[in-house]
Structure formats: C-alpha cells, structure tokens
Design a protein around this nucleic acid. Structure first.
Lengths: 135, 135
DNA sequence: TGCTTATTTAAGAAAGTTATTAAATATAAA
DNA sequence: TTTATATTTAATAACTTTCTTAAATAAGCA
C-alpha cells in the first residue's frame, strides 16, 4: 500500500474494491497484468489440469520412463479398465501432450516434444520425493 | 518390446495384460516404478490440480508479482465474489502453497517458499507466451 | 468370410468442483 | 455498545470429471 486515498476519492473511481484502504494503482496494475497475458492463463491451467489428475500424472511419468506404451498395457499397470485409460489418453492427445503410433492392432502412445518443457520437471519431483526413502 | 513370449507363457504368469504380445517384464517394471514412488503421485497431482484451475493460477501469478494481496482486492481484480475468492484461497492454504498475515481487519496472503520450486516455472510460461506479442 | 484382439466411442451414474446466497465471526471505529 | 468493514463458513445449485457398461470400429488371422 502506497498512498492512502480518501473513501470519497475511491468511490469516485468506482471501478474498485469496497475496501477502504485499497490501493487503486496496485489493483489497476494487476488488472492490466491479467489482460496483457490474455489467453495464457487458460491455456496453461488447461495443461496443468491434465497433470493434476493422479492417473494421468502416472501415465505421463510412465511414458517418460518407457518411451511408449499401449492402452492395454497401461490398463494392466494402472489396474483400471481399458476404456477408462483410453479416455485419459484422449484428453492428453487433445491437448497435444502425447501422440499415437499404430503397429498392427496396437497403438503405442508417447510424449510429444511440444509440452515437455512444462512436464519434465514434474518427473524429477516424483523421483526425488520418495525414491530415496523407500527400498 | 524385447522378447516375444508365447501366449501360454503369458497366461501362466497371469498377473498381466490380455494383450498377446505384452512385454511381461516391462509391465512388472512399470508396476514397481509406481509402487516405489508411493504417495508422490497423489501429492504432486494434488498440487498441480490447484494450479490447474484458471482462477487459482491467476491468484498464484498475482501473488508472485505483488508479494501480497487480500481477498477483497483479489475479488476486485478477478471480477468475482469475495466468498468465491476466499474458497480458492483456502484450498491454496490447506495445501501449504500460501499463508495469511493479519493487519487489522485485512488478511494479506502471500506465496510460501515451500512449493515455489514447483510453481515458479509456470510464471515464466505465462510471461513468455504472450507478453511479447501484446502491447 | 467369420472370429479374435486392440482400441475407441457413447450413454449414463456417481462423485467432485466451483459459484451463489445468506449467515457467522472478527476487528475496528463512532 | 452499536455499527461498519473484512473475511470465513455453510448450504446448495449448476457444472464438470471420471468411471462403468455396452456397442462400434479397425486390424489381423484361420
């Protein structure tokens, strides 16, 4: 908080918080920051929401480790139904995080380079947090 | 895929995928990887889910920029009700991402050091993705 | 061709998330 | 003490997510 504005002064520029001691300049600066970064918040939160699901985080981690895996094997590893896995894979594919390569009847999924800068640090978090302690 | 196991061989070690050409060793290795990292996936995905919401990602970004902000000002900046903001702040506080400091009637929230290693890279993503283009 | 395997899609139920409104709590100020 | 301000809490409604089951698609094999 920098300058104390009178309550009347605040009510005049009435685009603002009801709070008496609100810093009008700070609030406007924040509004501009959000506007200047336009759709970035929506895009980034969309990607983070993908990794914000435990099953999908595991899938991403496993694809990093094994390079590629098919829905059937993932279903087996994760202990869940194939359609459930398939639907998670679709979400990852829709947001350009993974891609599929067909080999006969099997489709092998792998991480795309595109979003790796964002996701790769997470895998280090996984390993560092618990692998040292256990086993 | 390394060695081709016969279908019979696969059915004997029957802890595995129905897929005929499944690599049993790979599947077991993956299972062990998940087990070895225990609760890390749940914890990390929980934190990522916080940032996986557009409103909360904006709050985190604004706290990084402004050091501290109160619910009332955030409500004004984000254009949403105070109880809505307060409930997002609670989620962030419950997972040790932010902390509050009381100054009279106002509570100023700020980022905790604890989870900053995880979240700070996101803020660079925001700035890099769009700030160059606009204005 | 028909049968099997691998995967996806679709519809629906159950659970989880987020905003809204109203009421409760807490501090400050008249 | 009463009144106003800042915030939280609670109940609830609308929406979203995720799993389940069944059906559809697609490729290989007898």
């Amino acid at each position: 908080m920098t300058l104390l504005n009178s309550k009347e002064e605040i009510m005049e520029n009435n685009q603002s918080c009801i709070r008496v001691f609100a810093d009008k300049d700070q609030i406007n600066h924040c509004r501009e920051l959000l506007q200047a970064n336009g759709s970035a918040f929506g895009q980034l939160s969309g990607l983070l929401a993908l990794a914000g699901n435990e099953v999908r985080l595991k899938i991403l981690f496993l694809l990093e480790e094994e390079k590629e895996l098919c829905p059937c094997d993932l279903s087996d590893i994760l202990g869940m139904s194939i359609p459930a896995v398939s639907q998670h894979l679709r979400k990852l594919k829709d947001k350009n995080v993974i891609e599929g390569r067909r080999d006969g009847q099997t489709i092998f999924y792998s991480l795309k380079q595109e979003q790796l800068t964002l996701f790769q640090p997470f895998f280090k978090h996984i390993i560092n947090n618990s692998n040292i302690v256990t086993v």
